[in-house]
Design a protein around this nucleic acid. Structure first.
Length: 113
DNA sequence: GACTTGACTAGAC
DNA sequence: AGTCTAGCCAAGT
């Protein structure tokens, strides 16, 4: 299975109201340094893929992502209940904890750092 | 098979 | 808080 296909599969698992970072997706695929490649994969994302739930490490929408077509990423996130403050998502509150691990609230500010 | 290109990131200034 | 730099890695030439 191509790297790109695995990225799509993983992104589809991000639930509504949650967001994941490029680096997080890469890490879950076993390639902690491939964040960039994840972005490239999403460049050709098929319709229906919740790509808007993927943001950069600071919780922000990347410049290129906007140029790539959308201001809609912010709108879609807000429609799902993900608030953006000063252009950034509150990762501590909305970050997707894949694997169900680290589900407890408090104490664990950032799972990946 | 050797470049080139980024929806990235962490660290240094 | 911004801006640069150097690694990184899948894809496209």
């Amino acid at each position: 299975m191509s790297f790109r296909a695995e990225v799509f599969r993983l992104v589809r698992r991000i639930p509504r109201g949650r967001v994941a970072t490029y680096g997080q997706i890469a890490a879950l695929l076993g390639r902690p340094r491939a964040a960039r490649a994840v972005g490239q994969a999403l460049r050709g994302a098929p319709g229906g893929l919740p790509w808007h739930r993927v943001v950069n490490a600071r919780g922000g929408i990347s410049r290129r992502a906007r140029l790539a077509g959308m201001l809609t990423q912010r709108i879609r996130l807000e429609q799902e209940g993900v608030a953006l403050r000063r252009g950034r998502v509150s990762l501590g509150a909305h970050a997707w904890r894949g694997r169900g691990r680290l589900a407890t609230r408090g104490g664990l500010a950032c799972g990946w750092h």
